[in-house]
Design a protein around this nucleic acid. Structure first.
Lengths: 202, 202
DNA sequence: CCCATTACATACCACTTGGTATGTTCTGTC
DNA sequence: GACAGAACATACCAAGTGGTATGTAATGGG
């Protein structure tokens, strides 16, 4: 028989840690604050996670990755018209974002900027997620090219990397400006760029 | 008579603080480490700066801003052919960057991601620099349009914001991947985008 | 030469941090 | 219902943090 109660507290800690890390970053995230939000204590934390780093890595693997998988990767993967779907996803993210979401930024980008130069384990996990993202976009572009939906005079890998980079860049500057409007404008430009990759149907 | 010695130690602290903040971020930057690198002590620090935040803001205003001003803003401002110069600057940054520079990322972007949601004063100073950057690019695009160097079917403000965002995005992902090659590839894509803004000379 | 101000150095403080060691309760098993 | 391990809670600790109070050497003016 499994023990649902233990797993539940583990997920409560994970969820609270994600929030705290999203707000303050990993280093500035206080274990005391994370626990206070759950009503638990350090005994619970260190029973489920051996160290703060392990907690952070678990947040990356089980929360950050999952969120991106559901919201971005999955929708693009199974698209019949990959290029159009790519544009839809970009515009969808822009449309659904609110002031708070813009102010906090992308959890993946936040952690990359903070932890990549400091911690090798973080860098590898985050880099893996980024690479899947890039691969999802690259594959979409390649399929679009194969279907004649996209032009075939550009390198899919390089274009995919740029699209992901610009995506995170838009979130980044909008986070600083704390302007939903700026975010949407910026994402619209990115969508326009993707549209320029479409094949001219003459 | 001015006192060059005092100003010199002030700049030594500022320079060391910039390095430390560039490496570890503002919050994780230790005043003890900053001082150790200079051979000075806390007495010197708190004589010149009332608080750690003031030191950080001074770093932003006097180091980060100056660097960007010299390396990016100034070259673009006085260009006869703004669009070409913009591409040159982008390619120049890509060409001259080394492994260490890529791994550390853009100081402005690092601080924006870390401090914007946490500290209003930081957010305002950083936002001002970002706005200057955007305005420099916007003005360049507008002049390019006026001279017929660029097409005139796009919004200069929106395009400028996107260019700056993509610029920071490229640095951001390259920082995580810790790959100079990926950075150059990404920046080349950005340069290509800027080229698409050129007027078709038929 | 005296003296006040500048420009630091030294010593110290309250506080928070991640981490640990120990105690306690709950749960399932025989 | 005794017993064992899981699943926590409580109390505590060394280390590091930003900040301060005080001491001191250099400097320049009268």
């Amino acid at each position: 028989m499994e023990k649902p109660h233990a797993d539940l507290t583990r997920e409560k800690i994970l969820s609270s840690a994600f929030c705290e890390i999203h707000r303050k970053g990993f280093q500035a995230a206080s274990l005391a604050d994370i626990l206070e939000a759950t009503g638990l204590t350090k005994g619970a934390l260190y029973y489920h996670f051996p160290t703060k780093q392990a907690l952070g890595l678990a947040v990356v693997d089980e929360v950050v990755r999952t969120r991106l998988e559901e919201r971005i990767f999955a929708p693009v993967r199974g698209a019949q018209r990959p290029l159009d779907r790519l544009v839809e996803v970009i515009e969808g993210i822009a449309r659904e974002s609110d002031a708070q979401g813009v102010a906090l930024g992308c959890p993946l980008n936040n952690l990359m900027q903070e932890m990549s130069p400091l911690d090798e384990a973080f860098k590898e996990r985050l880099s893996a997620i980024l690479e899947t993202w890039r691969e999802v976009v690259r594959s979409a572009l390649a399929r679009a090219q194969a279907r004649g939906e996209a032009r075939d005079d550009f390198d899919c890998g390089a274009a995919a990397l740029f699209i992901v980079a610009a995506f995170e860049g838009c979130i980044g500057v909008a986070k600083n400006m704390q302007s939903v409007e700026a975010f949407r404008s910026c994402m619209r430009q990115l969508a326009n760029f993707v549209v320029t990759l479409k094949a001219d149907r003459s």
